[in-house]
């Protein structure tokens, strides 16, 4: 069954605070083979002008995936996640994520479309500090394959 297109434009208020930790950054950097000392050494990061170690550019996925689950799991939308593939992803970094950041995400459904039996869902997470300063805009396209697709 096609997704409810009236979901376009819907927003969800910010959920729990995500606190960015040094060890989580290191763990993620190790997993993606990111060798830069700016992910691991606070002194090196400060020398480069950052408040603390910085996260790799795609680390934002940890936060945006958690945030967008509010849409994906919304029973009103009725998305069958077992049929979902990730179509595309964009991160706009207003500044790098830094250890110690306390971040919240406001989630927006930018677009809902059904084409050739497949559903296309564009979800944007505006990731900011607790006091509302922009850190990252994450936009992902999820594609739910139709029963016959």
């Amino acid at each position: 069954m096609p997704l409810d297109q009236s979901f376009t434009g819907r927003s969800y208020p910010p959920g729990d605070v995500y606190e960015v930790g040094r060890e989580k950054i290191r763990e993620f950097a190790d997993a993606v083979g990111a060798a830069s000392p700016l992910h691991r050494d606070p002194e090196a990061a400060r020398a480069a002008g950052y408040a603390d170690v910085i996260a790799p550019p795609t680390f934002a996925t940890v936060i945006s995936m958690k945030a967008t689950s509010i849409v994906v799991d919304d029973p009103e939308l009725g998305l069958d996640y077992s049929r979902v593939v990730h179509g595309s992803q964009t991160f706009v970094h207003h500044r790098p994520m830094v250890a110690g950041d306390r971040l919240v995400s406001e989630v927006h459904v930018d677009d809902v479309q059904t084409r050739m039996g497949n559903d296309f869902l564009t979800i944007r997470a505006e990731i900011t500090t607790e006091d509302g300063r922009a850190v990252c805009t994450s936009t992902g396209l999820l594609v739910a394959r139709g029963e016959d697709a």
Binding site: S36, P56, P57
Partner: peptide, 24 residues
Amino acid sequence: ALANELVSDWVGDPGAIVETTTKF
């Protein structure tokens, strides 16, 4: 992430990447 590491290594600062996008 691996694609972006190529760029991070080249530019010398992973914080220099202000936007990154791809289709899968």
